[in-house]
Amino acid sequence: MNATTTRGALLAALACVLVGGSFTANSVLGDYPYAGGQFLRYALACLLLVPVAGKGAVGRLRALTSRQWARLALLAAVGMVGFNLAVIAAERTAEPAVPGVFVGCAPVAVAVLVPLLDGRRPQRVVLYGSLLVAVGAFTVQGWGRTDGTGIAFSVCALAGEVGFAVLAVPVLRPLGPRLLSATVCAVAALESAAAGLLVDGAGWLRRPDTVETAALLWQAVVVTVVGFVCWYVGMQRIGAERATLFSGLIPVAAACTAPLVGTGSYGPAQAAGSALVGLGVALGSGALRRAERKRAPRGRAFRGNGRRESRGVRVPETPE
């Protein structure tokens, strides 16, 4: 694994760990208006991202086509506002593990959809790795009580997680990670405000208390600004299929941080699931194959055409 792919993998992993750890912040925002909280989160994140969006940001935005703007609006609606709303709605009639299990299947869906949309076949090693990640995520979280409504909203959450990766692929190159993050945050803030006015009316936004303010700041600064940029930089370097493998770290990070605030425990099932996620990531990213090549004997290597090499020095063939 070269320096570029290693850095991309580490950034994608960091982004997913931050998202997993943010579940603690979500737990203290249960009484705050959903749309208002999303508006504050994404508006603040946009303001922080604009100064680091890079030179020529306005020109790059003007160069976008109407189709690309529509994709950005859909990315914000499905992968950000819609995803968070689906998770909250699912948890009203289902235990948190249920939407978590569905979201854990996102690597499988992305491993199939991204190459098909690009006109190529899915890579077997990535698909096998994503299946291991999905099984590991299920093992970490288990299965909880639910009903038909909870399952339906959990499927919507899965669609949102998949959309967050798939919809970003065509606009990542022209905008870059930082400008893309700033733009979708601005769009998501506008969409949240519109949804809040339609659903909650005048009560869609209120002044948060001290605990809610801290949670919103964590989500805006750490999870959104740092997490989004790391995620899209990682996706840019290793591709959407391999980057989404690291989403299996979301339930692992949530399980590791839950005991710190007394909302869960970390036991043998969580440890086994974490190991499966790690194995799936290593397999799908190609790290296992590269490790095997490094462990291969360097003294002599044989090629299929009969030539023999010794420590990089080619040895002439014996005449037949």
Rank of each mutant, 00 (worst) to 15 (best):
A269P: 00
A275K: 01
L260I: 06
A258D: 07
Q270P: 00
V261I: 08
G262V: 10
A272M: 14
T257C: 04
P268Q: 02
A253K: 04
Y266V: 10
G267Q: 15
V277L: 01
A253G: 09
G262P: 12
L249V: 11
A275F: 10
S274K: 01
I250W: 02
A269Q: 05
A255V: 12
A243N: 14
R237N: 07
I250S: 09
Q236Y: 13
G264K: 08
Q270G: 09
G262F: 15
Q270E: 11
C256M: 13
A255R: 13
G278P: 00
A254Q: 13
I238T: 13
G278Y: 02
A255L: 12
G267P: 03
I250G: 03
G264S: 08
T244V: 15
L276T: 00
V261F: 12
G264Y: 07
G262I: 10
S274A: 13
Q236R: 13
T257G: 06
A243C: 12
I250E: 11
V261K: 09
G273M: 07
G264I: 08
R237T: 04
P251M: 10
A258Y: 12
P251K: 05
S274N: 01
Y266G: 04
L276Y: 00
Q270K: 01
A271G: 00
A275Q: 04
L245E: 15
Q236T: 11
Y266T: 13
G264E: 15
V252T: 12
R242S: 14
Q236H: 09
Y266S: 03
S274C: 11
C256E: 11
A255H: 05
A272I: 12
A269I: 00
L260G: 06
A243T: 14
L249G: 10
L245I: 12
Q270Y: 01
A254W: 06
V277Q: 00
R237D: 12
S265T: 12
G273Q: 08
A275T: 03
P259L: 10
Y266M: 11
I238V: 14
